[in-house]
Design a protein around this nucleic acid. Sequence first.
DNA 1: CTGTTAGCGCCTTCAG
DNA 2: CTGAAGGCGCTAACAG
Lengths: 347, 347
Amino acid sequence: MTSTEPEPAAAATPAAPAQPTLRDVALAARVSPMTVSRTLRGDEGVSEATRQRVREVARSLGYRPNEVARNLRLGRSDGLIGLVVTNLANPFYSQLALGVEEALAEQGMRVLLGNSGEDPTRERQLVHDFISRRLDGLVVVPATHHHGHLGPVQTLGMPVVLAASLPVKVDVDAVLLDDFGGTWEATRHLISAGHHRIGFLGLPAATWTGSERYRGYCAALEEAGIPLSAELSGYRQRDVAAAEKATEALLDLPDPPTAIFAANNRNTIGAYRAIRARGATTRLAGFDDFELADSLGLPLTLVAYDPRELGREAAVLLCDRIAEAGAGAEPGAPRRKVISTRIVEYG
Amino acid sequence: MTSTEPEPAAAATPAAPAQPTLRDVALAARVSPMTVSRTLRGDEGVSEATRQRVREVARSLGYRPNEVARNLRLGRSDGLIGLVVTNLANPFYSQLALGVEEALAEQGMRVLLGNSGEDPTRERQLVHDFISRRLDGLVVVPATHHHGHLGPVQTLGMPVVLAASLPVKVDVDAVLLDDFGGTWEATRHLISAGHHRIGFLGLPAATWTGSERYRGYCAALEEAGIPLSAELSGYRQRDVAAAEKATEALLDLPDPPTAIFAANNRNTIGAYRAIRARGATTRLAGFDDFELADSLGLPLTLVAYDPRELGREAAVLLCDRIAEAGAGAEPGAPRRKVISTRIVEYG
DNA sequence: CTGTTAGCGCCTTCAG
DNA sequence: CTGAAGGCGCTAACAG
């Protein structure tokens, strides 16, 4: 292990009152394991009498088939998907996770959860662990632009779908937001409301969403003939406290912005706090909708979309690939799915 | 299948480019599978020469041990925990999930996620699926007070920990909030601030947290010699829209409450919306802290605690039990852990 | 209708 | 130091 983690699948020794096996049921019902297997799977060709008896015994013993052994024997996978998100505490990711869970549950599949905490090392560990567990596929919200470990070769052909990030140098599917379009539109709103000095609170520069949103901001400004200003658009952060500080710095400028676009919900909330604390009249806009956004007591323009749908679409794409791989087909070209955004006005 | 779900572990047929097995590596390295196994596990007793060669071949083939088969052979579990929550879209549960994930990751274990959507049938399905997968244990936020299906699970050697709910007729561990104490304290705050007509927005009557919080409210009133009023404390709901309506009804009373205690974050937000829409001066208090609670422009008293800690404690309790079962020890008496709450004042 | 054989991928045990 | 046998729990395929 290169990590600080004890063991991939450490766990404990077997439980004391071991769960009954097919053999136990067979012994108790005085038939062969095969008969039990057939009965419990509803296979044809078991007399009603024994069928009855086997079922009875199985129930009284609390028998449950061991899906692990079952799947091993059947040479098929366990119907398990790995989901790696950067920060489950952010409602964006928890709703995404919910979308994935729901869509997969409809297919009888389950989700193995991994939180990378924005740490690329941790992300790689999780991915490796998931490979060893022979999962059917992965949905990953990458922590950085390093996606090398997610390529088909690295993952041994295990399908991977990226969420909210364009794959870099790897041929995998991805579900994206209209980061550029949404930001562009929101920024234009600000401009057409008469704002010419518009601050931008960005995400770390190397992130896909961050750069796309910045691009959208730049495009809107350019169209309107407004020059870019480094002092107005230089801040990059992803937590509320840092965003609040950055906003204070913007407001402290000799010629402060009359409006601010925040690149995600953390930045929007941080900016809101600073603006409110100062009693400033700075117009605020941002990417991501969030609960109570309508109740903050100041006008707010947000780029809204459904994070759950993003998760659902990622799951759909992944299931497609899994089916494709299962059919032994050659993997087709990488797919892109874009979740559209809409502008909502609050306050 | 009694459910509408396709199959417990449906999934697809095996992937096309099958992942290499120990045997494949052995063949390519011209040694026996045993030697490969030993080498890759870092077992003693393999000459440096073969060791080198095997590692080389394994890497070039992209070999990854099949943890599933490994664990089957070792007769041990996969280091997997099942987590069943009622609604991952509620920040309370997603933070709880994060706590569970983090605490377990420290032990090299992983979390299998299940969202019951408050549906007891779905909860039972999930639990059964988790049993079949031979997980090491379960953390469950039960959808109802029916916990009968969880007893047999534990008997079969799969430890269960309940979160935010007192076990009913089953001997399992549980992590609870100080529902009674928190509500009692908050209600007393309202009373000592001069409020005598205090509305109560409750959760469905059969839930543990709901009834404990109601009890706390009742206790505070009783102590102060304030009679209970059915018209003030009869509403029970768990979503924002219903809470908003209930609050409107309270405000429409001939003699409306001067303060309201809301039994969870959904109710608090619903109440907030109604109060604000009416421009009422009703004093608001509630269970659960939430982001932006300080920014709503009205005084707010909340019963706060760390949901992540709740998840973490549940994981710790569960790991204890797993270790205990692993050591072949007799299971001790059910444990209770209470997460304390504190009052926070906003606005 | 029921049982036997064999093996999924791996590892413990025992021989060489 | 290395290999062969056997089996974890289950089920196809083939007897009887």
